[in-house]
Design a protein around this nucleic acid. Structure first.
Length: 418
DNA sequence: TCTGGGGTCCTAGGACCC
DNA sequence: TCTGGGGTCCTAGGACCC
């Protein structure tokens, strides 16, 4: 078997760079993209801002402390998804095997593209040039025999980098790197591995696999493989992706709330958002999850309930959520509320037989049609008419557009959601 | 104005059935 | 008259990714 050739392409400071390109006044300046909600964080910082220590996930006040002259821009989802979809379409010119990993990252399996394009470096050269020319954006690319290593490589040189890990260099490159560099090892796992004396990827590869398996189960084998740079997972194009397994929305409230009335109102809003998304995906779910984060940020409670039937209409979701809420004795004021639908069933929409339900389904369809055309919450429940938050928070760079998961499409559609 | 949002996967324990 | 084992479904919570 010949070695595969996998690329990982990571857009540099994607949201912030898009903003700098569309508004020249922002170029060369410390810029950060944030959400619209009052309680938001830094979504992406430009490289100029990163020099001051501004990072993704940082609170606004902290970013301002680190960099008083920082320019904050409220994110514009449409701009990013539109740009991203065009970039992903460019990738498809070099291989059909493109796996979208997040809105600003993708894997490409170019093993069989070399007959046409020569070397992987040449493909990267062409792609980078086109992205730069069309959007003024740069990216970092890793070339390696598998996804794990390609992702590691793309991280090694930023911005506008290209790093190659050749099969015969794998152990030499991995040996001194900290385990945290591996995609899949977060801070908790890092701590646990440190306790075993494992600090570098080399240490991980040399550590007895049976001890890892005893301690971590299935994950133990996976850790061992990662330590040796082994990853046989394929690049899965959109058309072969698994279907979505859950649909949910959550929101941090502008202020903490304790009144039942306020909580119910937000639950209704969330139910409508989840229901709309589920109906757009053509799914209904049997299990409803309610998630509450309390005012202290650290305490939370999640409860779920499985129903006899699958649902996706907003009022049914709302009823289920309220049923769960009624079993919970609130410990503190509420900071965040979330509703998620799992146990999903994909169905062809069918109108119910009984007149009353049929009428309701028709009305929901009509409301969805209006909201699809004129924007979320154009038509909604009367109690939500004065709602300030319309669910238009800036998406995360990790946002996966639903279009990407549609089965059977060749080209990525213009994405729009939420 | 301290700390977002949307997912996936794994574990562990309990209920229930055969 | 005393108690195994497998399979499946459910709940709760944690870790991880971007």
């Amino acid at each position: 078997m010949t070695d595969r050739i996998i690329l990982h392409l990571d857009m540099n400071a994607f949201f912030a760079s898009v903003e700098q390109q569309t508004n020249p006044a922002l170029r060369g300046k410390p810029v950060a993209v944030i959400g619209s909600n009052g309680r938001t964080v830094i979504t992406t910082a430009s490289y100029e801002a990163r020099k001051f220590g501004v990072k993704t996930g940082m609170a606004i006040w902290e970013a301002k402390r680190q960099c008083p002259q920082i320019i904050l821009v409220v994110g514009d989802n449409c701009k990013y998804t539109c740009t991203a979809s065009q970039i992903f379409n460019m990738m498809l010119d070099y291989t059909p095997l493109v796996e979208v990993f997040s809105i600003d990252e993708a894997f490409l399996d170019v093993t069989h593209s070399l007959k046409i394009f020569g070397t992987p470096e040449h493909i990267v050269y062409l792609l980078k040039a086109r992205i730069k020319h069309s959007f003024g954006l740069t990216c970092s690319v890793g070339i390696a025999p598998n996804k794990l290593l390609a992702k590691l490589a793309s991280d090694m040189k930023k911005p506008d980098g290209l790093t190659i890990i050749r099969p015969d260099e794998v152990s030499q490159v991995l040996d001194p790197l900290p385990i945290k560099d591996l995609c899949g090892i977060g801070s908790r796992m890092e701590q646990k591995l440190h306790l075993l004396g494992i600090k570098t990827i080399g240490d991980l590869g040399r550590f007895p696999v049976d001890i890892l398996k005893r301690k971590f189960g299935i994950t133990g084998q996976h850790l061992h493989d990662m330590g040796l740079g082994i990853d046989n997972s394929p690049v899965v194009p959109a058309s072969d992706q698994d279907k979505v397994k859950s649909v949910g929305r959550s929101m941090t409230l502008r202020q903490d709330i304790s009144q039942r009335q306020d909580i119910l109102k937000h639950l209704l809003q969330l139910s409508e958002m989840v229901g709309r998304r589920a109906r757009r995906y053509g799914v209904s779910g049997k299990t409803i999850h309610l998630y509450i984060r309390y005012a202290d940020f650290y305490t939370s409670i999640g409860k779920q309930q499985t129903l006899a039937n699958s649902i996706n209409q907003s009022d049914d979701i709302y009823k289920a959520a309220v049923d769960i809420l009624n079993t919970i004795e609130l410990q503190q004021p509420v900071r965040l509320l979330g509703i998620r639908l799992t146990n999903l069933k994909y169905q062809v929409a069918q109108l119910p037989l009984f007149p009353q339900e049929r009428k309701k389904a028709l009305m929901v369809n009509a409301m969805d049609a209006v909201n699809n055309r004129y924007g979320d919450f154009t038509l909604t429940f009367a109690t939500l008419m004065d709602t300030e938050e319309k669910g238009s928070h800036v998406i995360s760079p990790a946002w996966r557009p639903n279009g990407i998961r549609c089965v059977g499409i060749k080209r990525f559609n213009q994405w729009s959601d939420g």
